[in-house]
Write a protein that binds this DNA or RNA. Sequence first.
RNA 1: GGGACCGUAGUCUAGCUUGGUCAUGAUGCUAGCCUGGGGUGCUAGAGGUCGCCGGUUCAAGUCCGGCCGGUCCCA
Length: 480
Amino acid sequence: MSKEIGITVKKNEDFSEWYTQVVIKAQLTDYAPVKGLIVLRPYGYSIWEFLKSSIDQKLKATGHENGFLPVLIPESLLSKETTHFAGFTPEVFWVTHSGDAEIGDRLALRPTSETLAYSMYSKWIKSWRDLPLKINFWNSALRAEIKSTKPFLRTSEFLWQEGHTVHATPEEAEGEVMTILDIYRKTVEEELAIPVIVGKKSEKEKFVGAVYTTTMESIMPDGKALQMGTSHFLGQNFSKPFDVKFLDKQNIETFAWQTSWGVSWRLIGALIMVHGDDKGLILPPRVAPIQAVIIPIYSSQSDKEAVLKKANEIKEVLAKRGFRIHVDSRDEFTPGYKFNDWEMKGVPLRIEIGPKDLAKNKMVLVRRDSLKKSDLSFEAAEDGIAHMFDEIQVDLFEKAKKLLNERTKNIADLSQFKKEMETGMFLSSPWCGDQKCEEKIKEDTGADIRVIPFDVKRSNAPCIVCGKQSKTDAMFARGY
RNA sequence: GGGACCGUAGUCUAGCUUGGUCAUGAUGCUAGCCUGGGGUGCUAGAGGUCGCCGGUUCAAGUCCGGCCGGUCCCA
């Protein structure tokens, strides 16, 4: 009947439209009245909460604390580090009035908080004893997106965390950069079941103001690469203009070494794109707000009571073990409707309990990812379902890994490069290190250097653009 | 940055070319019944500044302009 309730396009036929429908119809988000802004609905927000708590725990375990920064940054402060300012200024929202009165030093809605944080840090840090200082901020950032906004991937305001740390030595700061990148990688691979490639950004693509930027990248099913998180080594680029210095053990005044890093709700976008199918979302059990939904099936009143009783019993058993279970006892919908509804919302596992099951002392399990059905006795519920969650989590990761592998190739020849890039690929190719070659290939093919992997395998072939001796191989792709 | 398209009840939509009982249908919603292992059926009911502002006209959902919002494609 009314197919409009569900997803009306196929993922591999109209990817963009599919994505838009999934985020809206699965009730993750809705459009706000202002261009480029979205509202997170509870279902979407709870996914963010799982991500947040997973990252937060890891940050705390590695000695970070949370703080809070205000959203307004005076222009005089934002403009202190000039390349940083020049990089961000085109997309800054400005507050120019308070009431009717014009504000002299207009206020930026933070595009990122380096400048504000470091102006504070310079007051707080006096001695080597004050270091390291490792503070993380859960907040939102605002960057005006004039064109082509897309929920979670490109919005004018986004939820994220930004970490800002200060260290006495460059070695320690660089260690921090890697610690964080590893936390990000683990979170994305283990919770979201998305494999990533970690490495460095090129000079052209690094964070404005950083010495270098490390990144994790993955490829989406439409062949576009997505930056999933970055961790920057700032060196003394900010500590000098912001006067973040300390007296070291030898009583010498020294500028500190800094890092900054962040991941945003863009990860939710990746989650949707990588795992979803024609029926809608598919959530990995670790981040699913509802891990299993129980659909009671009955016709007579007496069946109804018995079935619901059993359903709630099973729910209790599983909830005790910490699983997030929902019994869909809505009376106004048929089981078939509910099946489709929860499939669209990506709940990893469906449990059906009806009179036939009560008679046989078992329930029917249906996996969201494979749609495979199996039986499980009520007694075995706890372990059986725990095991199934693990299996789904692993299978989703393996499937995503296969996608990444299929879309990744080593190419040393330019004409072949152009041909492959047309199909949406992640291409590892030799590069001389010259920014001109990087720009040339961007012009010709639309592809950027997404990442120079830490574990890059050197081909030692000539640069794919200019033919000179290559310095490294780099991963090229068109990006989001 | 360049281009194409769209905006009518919660949702999807007819009507726009050729201005005039044209606000259409479905779904959803509410109530009551029926049904229930893959998007059930019946009956009744509520729900609309036709995105906003202005213009043309005796008359604008329909024509014109501006604005707001959204989608897609290319760089």
